[in-house]
């Protein structure tokens, strides 16, 4: 259950970010995680991507619809909802996830700084036959996803 530990850490990162937002009590809800084939479309409007190398390797994406990001921007007092600003927010969330992961997963992993992707996730570095975990996220009735695409270095049998 190595994946569980790792995914829990990523979720913790997401929660950590949303905990810092000082809105009225609004719970971050995580729905039942499911699988999606890597060959299918991945990602919502904006995605912050971090790559992980080490014992397991792959990608962690925080992907969000733009309304959710706009809400966060509003909370920051911003009124500019340009692509740049939305990407900035999604990158910041991914950064929190990667920072949290770095402090928990330690030396056996290398965790990259986040990259922002607009639209569908480009999958040229991913194993298309494999499956990624999708953890649906709801916050103020807007949705986002934490997508975890991990491959074991040794094949599972």
């Amino acid at each position: 259950m190595k994946h569980k530990k790792q995914i829990d850490i990523f979720i913790e990162g997401v929660k950590r970010y949303f905990d810092h937002l000082t809105f009225e009590e609004e719970l971050l809800e995580i729905g039942a995680p499911y699988l999606v084939r890597n060959s299918e479309r991945l990602g919502l409007d904006y995605t912050g991507a971090i790559s992980i190398t080490g014992d397991s390797k792959g990608y962690v994406f925080f992907s969000s619809t733009s309304p959710l990001l706009k809400y966060i921007l509003l909370g920051h007092g911003a009124s500019n909802f340009s692509e740049e600003y939305l990407g900035d927010i999604v990158g910041e969330i991914a950064n929190t996830i990667s920072g949290n992961a770095r402090s928990h997963m330690g030396a056996e992993f290398h965790i990259s700084p986040p990259k922002v992707i607009v639209g569908e996730i480009n999958k040229y570095n991913m194993n298309l036959n494999s499956r990624s975990y999708v953890l649906p996220i709801r916050w103020r009735r807007n949705s986002a996803q934490l997508i975890v695409s991990l491959e074991e270095n040794e094949q599972l049998l």
Binding site: K4, I7, A32, L135
Partner: peptide, 14 residues
Amino acid sequence: RGQDLLTLTIQLRQ
């Protein structure tokens, strides 16, 4: 909570 079902998803993937 949804997160509690993560073990199932992981097992399913396996």
